[in-house]
Write a protein that binds this DNA or RNA. Structure first.
Length: 433
DNA sequence: TTTTGAGTTGTTCGA
DNA sequence: GTCGAACAACTCAAA
């Protein structure tokens, strides 16, 4: 017999229980497939497409070049391959996103053999952490405590003996540098040496001392269970703080699984009445990094140039769009999803909602980031600004955060008055209460 | 059953 | 310059 392992966002061989099940079901003979879904591919920006292609290349190399990549609707591609090899079963790691759940049901309906779900991209699958009433949590801290108490299994090894079954498929790009399971593990092991400093330094975009694990996690090049096992061996405040961030990722996935509409609609219904501006010139200035606020522009340019933005800066640019420009968060969320290499629907949408004040355990409406003071606080020497905004490289130290005081002809003037914009945001929030 | 205290990331204002 | 208060409303768990 042969089993099919349908890879999606679990592009690794180690710590992959679904793959172990496929190997067992196929008695060692497994056909590994990745279906390039045009619906998802066309919606992704270049950074995600590039990374996915490179990661598939890396996975295929680890499989002796036998990963079968086919382009097309998974509901056609996967059953066709299963027929081709007379598969006993098709194996997946469960997807809890709104699109993925529907797609998997359609594939299941088209298959002649069973679709077996084993594991998920999370240490604790969405829907497993429940309060005493048997419902999902709306507040992070109690969720976190229950998540810790729930616990997770230990990582599992890569399968020892697999005969990867051949079939025809698309050519993969030749370069897989920096992507894939091996790169993810090497990067993670190196980062672990610094995780103790995470608590103190993670908010500093100039130091760039975050783990950068969002991309490997997005594609499942590593499983969070592997990371949690490593963190458990390191008792430090930094390791504890890092574990909390992994739990936030799972909290977001849990919320989205239970509220599929939360991808683009506010969780709190009163926000349907919130007054927003249509995205126009100001929105375009935000996208392009030409708002005249150095920290906002540095972040948006880092995003455009690299497909990544430091976490602290993501909050600042998001707050600026929603609370200074009064544009609906979904436009920002959509821009992020197109631009980010690590773009994950659950983390992206729920964190935008958190900033906008309409999500679960959301930031209070009166918490409005001041882009200048955030810059002075978290980029004290202005280095992050000078790295991404060349027009301001002539300004020393903190002066880079207030170019209007020190002169910078090539740089735009602020497109709004922050103090007035803040007051307006507070008025609009008051109106829906 | 009811009450109480606590809860990711901030800013401004006035003493 | 430093410091505390105010800026809501609601969920959840413990008492």
């Amino acid at each position: 017999m042969t089993a099919v392992m349908w890879f999606r966002r679990d592009l690794r061989l180690a710590d992959n229980p679904a793959l172990l099940d496929a190997v067992a079901a196929g008695d060692g003979r497994v056909l590994g497939v990745f279906a390039v879904d045009p619906l998802l591919w066309d919606r992704s920006g270049d950074p995600r497409r590039d990374h996915l292609a490179a990661s598939l290349r890396s996975l295929s190399e680890a499989m002796g070049g036998r990963l079968v990549v086919r382009r097309g609707d998974p509901a056609t591609v996967v059953p066709a391959l299963a027929d081709e090899v007379g598969a006993a079963s098709v194996h997946i790691s469960a997807d809890y996103g709104p699109y993925g759940q529907q797609r998997d049901q359609e594939v299941e309906a088209s298959l002649k053999c069973p679709l077996r779900r084993t594991g998920s991209p999370y240490a604790v699958a969405p829907g497993r952490v429940l309060n005493q009433q048997g419902r999902s949590y709306q507040v992070f801290t109690p969720y976190f405590k229950a998540w810790l108490a729930h616990g997770w299994r230990q990582p599992v090894e890569a399968p020892a003996d697999v005969t990867w079954v051949k079939s025809s498929g698309e050519e993969l790009p030749s370069s897989g540098d920096g992507a894939g399971e091996r790169a993810a593990l090497e990067h993670w092991k190196a980062y672990l040496e610094d995780v103790a400093a995470y608590d103190d330094e993670r908010d500093r975009p100039d130091l760039d001392s975050t783990s950068r694990m969002s991309v490997p996690l997005k594609y499942g090049e590593i499983h969070p269970r592997t990371m949690l096992a490593d963190l458990a061996r390191r008792r430090s405040v930094g390791a504890e703080a890092y574990r909390r961030e992994l739990a936030w990722r799972e909290f977001c996935a849990d919320l989205l699984a239970r509220n599929p509409q939360a991808a683009w609609k506010p969780l709190r219904p009163e926000f349907d009445k919130m007054q927003y501006e249509e995205p126009g010139e100001l929105f375009e200035a935000w996208c392009a990094g030409r708002t005249g606020f150095p920290l906002v522009d540095a972040g948006m340019r880092q995003l455009a140039e690299t497909g990544f933005v430091h976490n602290r800066v993501r909050m600042v640019v998001a707050s600026f769009l929603v609370k200074d420009l009064h544009v609906h968060w979904r436009f920002g969320a959509r821009w992020f999803m197109r631009s980010l290499r690590d773009g994950d629907l659950a983390s992206n949408s729920l964190n935008w909602q958190w900033v906008a004040g309409c999500g679960a355990d959301a930031a209070p409406y009166f918490r409005i980031f001041n882009p200048v003071s955030q810059g002075q606080k978290f980029d004290p020497d202005g280095e992050y600004i000078r790295r991404w905004v060349p027009e301001l490289r002539h300004l020393d130290g903190k002066a880079a955060h207030e170019p209007w005081r020190y002169g910078a002809d090539a740089y735009p003037a602020p497109i709004v008055d922050h103090s007035e914009a803040r007051a307006e945001a507070l008025r609009r929030y008051a109106a829906i209460r």
